[in-house]
Amino acid sequence: MKRKRRDAPPGDFQDPLSNYDPPIYADDMEKSLCEDSILDLKTTPFRTVSPDMKVCDAIKLMVEIDVACLLVTEGDKLLGIFSERDVLNKVTQDFDIASQKPIGQVMTQDPMAVYETDTPADALNIMATAGFRHIPVLDVDDKVVGILGPRRITAYLQHYFE
């Protein structure tokens, strides 16, 4: 049965957004950082590898393609990040043995991530407070769609000064 739509009595309606004060930004740069999506920054390319890859092969790959970290995945699931800092902390001291291990044993597990709907300011704050240089970008299904690092952020900021 189709219901008849009743009009609200005049004068009863209260706009829930009537008290909303939109944020005030001092300049375009602040507005972009707080309102753009992460995807407005360059988040690709990124490289995923299996947790079974040997540490020595991973280091070689990172040098070859000139990246500071690799995303370790199984299927679509993000397991961890293998970064230059993992090499410094866990591999260098005992290189001959550690370099033969699978990166699944050496990587940083369960890294903090951002969603593609988050803002650049969100990502910057995670980097600043948690101390991670590289942050994976996930979609609604938790699938990796990119990675954000300081070099991409400085490139994004630089265009406000050109």
Binding site: E30, A121, L124, R133, I153
Partner: peptide, 12 residues
């Protein structure tokens, strides 16, 4: 990079 990111993050 770290110093710059912390500086910007402090604004938000």
């Amino acid at each position: 990079q770290k110093g710059l990111i912390e500086y910007i993050a402090e604004h938000f």
